[in-house]
Design a protein around this nucleic acid. Structure first.
Length: 182
DNA sequence: CGTCTTTGACCGGCGC
DNA sequence: GCGCCGGTCAAAGACG
């Protein structure tokens, strides 16, 4: 298998077969196993893997919630940027870093790229949407300006459907996986 | 022919 | 109010 990043993020690990499989197949041995229920809901996961091991290097912390509102009637959504009459997603954002030469993470979902533009700090993020009908999950992929080898992936929202794609390769990886804490 | 990527234009938020 | 900026749209092109 090629050197290739994959992902897991806390918004979905309680629902994701991949994540459950990840913990079921882990062999912590000398290392402390990160229990499923010990990870905070808003964790960042810093994940590396090569053709033999998957390694979580860090559970980074925190997540941004798009809802700064102090209004008690929070059911109302704000207009979405760039969309007339659109609704701004109120979903959580989840970000983590992977070290890889490949930008696209094979997370089992299908993504459609809808934009890429240069922004400040020398970043050049790509924007993706989940292609599943009715699923509004988005992700943003960019390389770290300080370290071009690190890919920062930010997910927004939670998939409302099962993983559509077989991830045989990923399951093979999982059987050799080690999990570390920092 | 269907799916996906590219890319310039456009939009709204935010700081000044 | 204005301009900058990040995020999104959508048409056109590429690809299998």
């Amino acid at each position: 298998m090629d050197n290739h990043p994959t992902m897991l993020h806390s918004s979905q690990y309680s629902h994701s077969p991949l994540f459950n499989c990840m913990f079921m197949n882990s062999h912590p041995q000398d290392h402390e196993l990160i229990q499923h229920d010990q990870l905070p809901d808003d964790a960042y996961v810093d994940l590396h893997w090569n053709h033999k091991n998957v390694q979580i290097n860090n559970i980074i912390t925190t997540v941004e919630d798009d809802v700064p509102s102090n209004n008690s009637t929070e059911k109302e959504a704000k207009p979405c940027k760039g969309i007339k009459g659109g609704k701004k997603s109120r979903a959580h954002k989840y970000a983590f870093q992977t070290r890889s030469q490949v930008d696209i993470l094979d997370d089992g979902y299908r993504w459609r790229k809808y934009g890429q533009k240069e922004v400040k700090n020398n970043k050049f993020p790509s924007y993706y949407k989940c292609t599943h009908q009715g699923c509004n999950v988005k992700k943003q992929v960019q390389r770290l300006s300080e370290d071009e080898g690190i890919v920062v992936t930010t997910y927004q929202g939670i998939h409302s459907h099962p993983i559509p794609k077989s991830t045989d390769n990923f399951h093979r990886i999982l059987t050799h996986m080690q999990i570390y804490t920092t």
